[in-house]
Design a protein around this nucleic acid. Structure first.
Length: 560
RNA sequence: GCGCCCGUAGCUCAAUUGGAUAGAGCAACGGCCUUCUAAGCCGUAGGUUACAGGUUCAAUUCCUGUCGGGCGCACCA
């Protein structure tokens, strides 16, 4: 049982009762807001109901509050007291026993604690990273990767079915350019003097790929039709790079259910089909020799070209087909995670999916702001073509996977993020991820000490009753228990807002409470009852820390 | 010029979707290890929430404008 729902029910009943009895006269009931007050002394839960009823009832808020309270006063055993405060808040103080009860819930549910079943479970596809396979992943992709993965777990935790997808732009001009760049490097390695045309990919990795081909196949591509050689180099480079990307993402702890090929959409004529579909809905028309999609009626600034006057399809056209494909695979909801540099594209793709007849709520495009890469406070200029960039791999190797992920997840996604490489390197001691992990390691350490002193932890955890827990009476103990029991609500609101960063803040706070508690109270003492109760408490903390870290995709080490 | 995001402590960021006294970490200063991990704890200091109006019982949050920063504005991908 969770406190929040119970109190909400009480309030709803109180309003109904007062109206039936005539002490309140209105008929509208505003949405009852129940929150956890920030400051001590303001109760475990507080509602602004009386404030929002003031207008409807035409009575001062405090008066309404006291009317409601008299109806609430039918002594609910788990409420310690109810107070009116400030302009008309109603503050609820719950009994300690009520809170202690939640320790039993945590131990019963274990890794399921915090999970819930959505009222209407959805089948969701999250598409993220999707960086062009023209080079290794750079740091900025790490943000999208960490975000998408955490969001996927978060939505799963609240009962949705989630798949992860990487969209591979494996066709188009940039692929040709990639093959051409590699081919030129190959010729260079065989002693030719070549000029790299402007715009070609110049990173070291291009030479690496060319070298590999030279080693394997010698000079056999010097002769013969260049065009077919370039096709071959394109394919080879693409495969090599995709393998790198997959390896890096795997090392980063991210698994995609599908790697979706843009080329396949074209090969299966889905682009044409999607455009025909739009035409059948009269959302596609011809003007100046080109085919235009009517995106304007759906909030776009102007209509957009899908087929150019020379007959070639735009990238927008394949994106329309791709989104249609995603919907047709049976997903209730699509989530795209894009960098801020693509935000200008949001309206048009949302408009296009609406033009096809999909409700706008079914597509969410989550924009994360860009990562400013700094070194010692100075911006690092990055360009994939010029080959000056910092890869995700380098950062993972330098800073570690856990710290990198936590760092990316600490910030709300719509603020730009400074990633200072020098700082990140030295952040091994400062990064808050260690603060949280350390709390977990500490708990494990206490438990192992308890074990060596012959405390039977298993047995203790199997027979928890309220009586044992009564020895947990210190204010900080109750405060920790209260915080633990708020975990499920936090997960739900984080999922609803699609803001995984809330978990990082929650975990830091909880870790802080533990560190502080550790300093002032011993868990393992001569007092058998107290020791048992505290072992129950700290194992509950451990469960919640683990559950939270798991959603973030960060490890919970037993030793540090 | 137009559009999107942001502007909160010296720095990096929160703030329960409009609530009570705006909070953390880092940096600074002063304390705490013969007892379960000092990657820790306790304390001090730090604010006209960019600015000006508006909406209401209540605004960091919503609206308008100004200023500042980032990004984007193709029959490119």
């Amino acid at each position: 049982m969770l406190g929040k729902e119970s109190v909400l029910h009480l309030l709803q009943d109180a309003v109904d009762e007062c109206r039936a009895a005539g002490s309140l006269s209105g008929s509208d009931t505003p949405q009852i807001v129940l929150e956890v007050p920030k400051h001590e002394g303001q109760g475990d839960f507080a509602t602004t109901l009386a404030l929002s009823l003031a207008k409807i009832e035409k009575k001062p808020p405090r008066e309404i509050a006291s009317i409601l309270i008299s109806a609430l006063e039918k002594k609910t055993p788990w409420i310690e007291k109810i107070e009116i405060a400030g302009p008309g808040y109603i503050n609820f103080f719950l009994t300690h026993d009520f809170w202690r009860q939640s320790l039993i819930t945590i131990h019963t549910q274990q890794s399921d604690f915090g999970k819930s079943a959505a009222p209407t479970p959805q089948k969701i596809l999250i598409e993220f990273v999707s960086a062009n396979p023209t080079g290794p992943l750079h740091v900025a992709s790490g943000r999208a990767a960490a975000l998408g993965d955490a969001l996927a777990r978060l939505l799963q935790a609240v009962g949705h079915e989630v798949d992860r997808e990487y969209y591979l732009n494996d066709i188009g001009a940039q692929m040709q350019l990639l093959g051409h760049s590699t081919y030129l490097r190959y010729r260079e390695l065989l002693g030719e003097k070549v000029d790299l045309p402007e715009g070609s990919y110049q990173g070291e990795y291009i030479i690496e790929i060319a070298e590999a081909l030279k080693q394997r196949d010698g000079n056999q591509y010097l002769e013969g039709p260049e065009a077919s050689h370039i096709d071959f180099f394109t394919q080879y480079s693409f495969e090599t790079i995709v393998a790198w990307i997959q390896k890096d993402l795997q090392a980063f702890g991210i698994h995609f259910n599908t790697w979706f090929s843009e080329k396949e959409i074209h090969d299966k004529n889905e682009v044409t089909a999607a455009l025909d579909f739009l035409k059948s809905k009269e959302m596609l028309y011809e003007k100046d020799g080109a085919q235009w999609v009517s995106t304007m009626p759906f909030g776009d600034d102007k209509d957009r070209v899908a087929v150019r006057s020379d007959g070639r399809k735009t990238y927008f056209a394949s994106d329309i087909a791709y989104h249609r494909n995603k919907f047709e695979r049976g997903y209730d909801r699509l989530i795209d995670i894009w960098g801020a540099d693509h935000h200008g594209y949001v309206n048009r793709i949302k408009a296009a999916t609406q033009a096809m007849g999909y409700e706008s709520e079914r597509l969410t495009i989550l924009i994360h702001q860009l990562v400013n890469l700094l070194r010692d406070g100075k911006p690092v200029k990055m360009s994939k073509r010029a080959g000056t960039f910092v890869t995700l791999r380098e950062v993972m190797d330098e800073v570690g996977v856990d710290a990198t992920r936590f760092f990316f997840l600490m910030r709300r996604s719509d603020t730009s993020l400074d990633f200072d490489l020098a700082l990140a390197k030295k952040a091994t001691n400062e990064n808050p991820v260690f603060y949280v992990q350390y709390a977990h390691a500490r708990l494990c350490s206490i438990l192992s000490v308890a074990k060596t002193q012959n405390w039977d932890i298993e047995a203790t955890l199997q027979n928890i009753d309220l009586k044992i827990l009564e020895t947990l009476s210190l204010p900080e103990e109750i405060a920790i228990i209260r915080e633990l029991s708020h975990y499920p609500a936090m997960i739900q609101s984080a999922a609803e807002a699609m803001e995984p960063h809330r978990i990082t803040f929650y975990l830091q706070n909880l870790a802080g409470m533990l560190h502080s508690y550790y300093f002032s109270c011993r868990v393992v003492t001569d007092d058998a009852e107290l020791t048992k109760a505290r072992l129950i408490l700290i194992t509950a903390i451990r469960i919640v820390l683990r559950n939270g870290l798991r959603i973030l995709g960060i490890s919970a080490p037993e030793k540090m």
